[in-house]
């Protein structure tokens, strides 16, 4: 029941975005992927969810080979994700966004909808109820009938998680969920992620906020220029020479030069 990347490489034209990445994500943990801008973190997510097909290497999940599967099939296998730059269906309500997420776990097709069969009505009711529950669990049920585009920024990020959860995943990939959140919202987010993990979900997190990453991760992998330069528990990563040099070090110099 684990997600395994073996020698995965991704090339865009001449640009090597990812080189020979080996990564194993065991069940029920919070694993974080960090690295400077452009290191290839989002690319890893895009490869896992089938947006791109790796130029080399294989991705296995739970006995399935994911290479070349269309994204919706991968989602149906139990891998869900959110997006770095929020991609909600802005002109649908918050509730509808979550209902869309339940598509892959429900069945009624056009014929059943046209005849409003008993099955379809019962399923619609179930979809609605479950979607409301999810919104409630994430504490955004008061926005149920609000258009997603109208939600405050932090709540939009939560709604993205809600939509991903609606697909009933085993693994949740979160791409910078704390970006743009204030400290209070970030704190709530950490609690949320921990509670999801405690319910048995595996969390794969890409995040720039070190407080979040160091605070909740069981394991951390570090990417730099498309290559994994370190992997281990938070403590070890914080003290790793190469990480400090490649990641934290560089950041200090850039902030230094700005001020």
């Amino acid at each position: 029941m684990s997600l395994r990347l073996e020698k995965v490489s991704m090339q865009f034209g001449g640009l090597v975005a990812l080189r020979d990445l080996d990564l194993e994500i065991p069940e029920g943990v919070i694993i974080s992927l960090i690295g400077p801008n452009g290191a290839g973190k989002t690319t890893v997510f895009n490869l896992i969810t089938g947006v791109y097909r790796p130029t080399e290497g294989t991705i296995h999940y739970n006995g399935h080979r994911l290479n070349g599967l269309p994204p919706h099939k991968i989602i149906a296998l139990g891998i869900a994700r959110t997006f770095q730059n929020i991609r909600l269906f802005k002109n649908m309500t918050a509730l509808e966004n979550v209902q869309v997420g339940m598509h892959c776990r429900t069945q009624s097709g056009a014929i059943r909808a046209l005849f409003k069969t008993r099955f379809e009505r019962a399923e619609e009711q179930r979809i609605r109820k479950r979607a409301q529950e999810i919104l409630q669990e994430l504490g955004i049920d008061r926005y149920q009938d609000e258009y997603a585009g109208n939600l405050p920024y932090g709540e939009q990020r939560r709604l993205e998680i809600a939509r991903a959860l609606a697909t009933d995943p085993k693994i949740l990939l979160l791409d910078e969920p704390a970006a743009g959140m204030n400290p209070k919202e970030t704190e709530d987010l950490m609690q949320l992620i921990l509670s999801l993990r405690n319910k048995g979900l595996t969390i794969f997190l890409v995040e720039h906020d070190m407080k979040v990453v160091m605070g909740i991760s069981d394991r951390i992998a570090v990417l730099d220029h498309g290559q994994k330069i370190a992997e281990g528990p938070p403590r070890a990563i914080q003290q790793d020479e190469r990480v400090i040099e490649a990641y934290l070090g560089r950041r200090h110099t850039t902030t230094g030069s700005i001020s």
């Binding site: 969810t49 947006v51 994204p71 989602i75 994700r81 997006f83 269906f89 991903a164």
Partner: peptide
Amino acid sequence: TAAELTGIPT
């Protein structure tokens, strides 16, 4: 794209 990645067979 987001629809496909939300599990919809577009």
